[in-house]
Structures are given as C-alpha cells and as structure tokens.
Amino acid sequence: MRSFNAGDVVYLLLAARWTVLLSLIAFAGGGLVGLIIALMRVAQARAARWFAIGFIRVFQGTPLLLQLFLVFFGGDLIGVPLGAWLSVILGLSLNAGAFLGEIWRGSIQAVPNGQIEAARALGLHYGQRMLRVVAPQALRTAIPPTVGFLVNLIKSTSLAAIIGFVELTRAGQQLNNATFRPFLIFGLVASVYFVMCWPLTIAASRLERRLALAYKR
C-alpha cells in the first residue's frame, strides 16, 4: 500500500486518452456499420430488411458486456486471436452500429416519401437519391440523437476495463488496488467521464430543442 500522489492524477489523465481514442474509433466503426444497417433497414429487398432487423434486435437485446466477451473469445475460436484492443473496437463498433442504424433509419424514414418519388421521377438513381435528396434532410434530424448516443458510447468504453484493456476505468482500478482510496480515485475517474460527456449531453438537448422549433414553424 502506498499513498495517492499527484503523479497518479497524471496517470489517470493519460489513461483517459485511451478512452477518447477508443470512443472515436468505435464511433467511426459504429458509424460505418450503422450506415450499412440503416440502408439495409430501408432497402427494397426483404432479405436485407430482415437481416438489419435481426442485427438490431440481437445487439439491442443482449448485454454489451457479453457481446464484448463473445467477440474476444470468438476470435480465438476461429483461430484469429484479436486481443483486448481489437475485440473491444470490433465489439463496440458492432453494438454502436445497431443503435446508430436504428437512429438513422428513423431519420431516413422521416424524409417525406414524395421527395424520393420526385427524385426517382427526375431520373436520379439510388446513390444520387440517397446522397443528394435524402441525406441532407435526414442529417438534420439525425444529429441530435447521434450526439446523445455518443455519450452512451463514451460510457460504454469503460467495459473495456473488464476485458483487461487499460483505459480510464482500468487505470482507476489499478490505482485503487495500490492505494486503496476508492472514493477519491473513482470519484476522479467519474469526473473525467463527466467532463467528456456532459458537454455532449447539453449539446444534444440544445440541438434537439432547436430542431423541434424548426419543425413547429
């Protein structure tokens, strides 16, 4: 047992970089998966829609922690040991993809159907319709809930600690094992998360209010 010192605060802050990096990478990965899932969810082909619905149901209906375990051990099982870092990225991306896919499906479907019909009548093909007609309008409704989801994603990265990846929460555990000052250390850890998440929470609700106003007009 040793005492808690200023160097430990620095250690926590350095570990927080991994939380930020993990969140950013998982957001990028989740965004990619989510885009594919959202497009499949609104596709013409029934098989694509069913796949997307099943994907969303499974990832929203089971605990994220088990999803992470399954990716971690699933990699070993098919002979590709992923290690903590890659499994967490893959697991979080798939999970985020399900949630973002569902959010974005809503935004895509909120674009009036007449717009898509008009675009089709004008001879725009699928890519053009989606990119030039649907996306710019869907983006407006998609942004507030996406920012809100980002808060969830940042919090979810703490589960990487259970797999053994050293990010903010894991670093807190290590320090607590050495110094045994749980309130102080986990209080600090929680504050760092709060500083990352709260501005996003506020931004999300501001954006949502602004959007609601825009729709009232």
């Binding site: 808060v151 919090k155 979810s156 703490s158 589960l159 600690a161 259970i162 929460t169 807190g172 555990q173 607590n176 045994f180 749980p182 309130f183 986990f186 209080g187 850890v189 929680a190 998360y193 709060f194 998440c197 709260w198 929470t201």
Partner: peptide, 22 residues
Amino acid sequence: VEIIRNTPFLVQIFIIFFGLPT
C-alpha cells in the same frame, strides 16, 4: 440526474462497492 447519466455504470458500481465499506 446529470451526474449519474454522464458517468459509466461500472464506475458507479466501483464507487459504491469499494467506497461504502471504507
């Protein structure tokens, strides 16, 4: 509400489980 919603559940568990006994 804001503190709970903007911090991870895992950290909350640790604060309670390791903190309260102290």
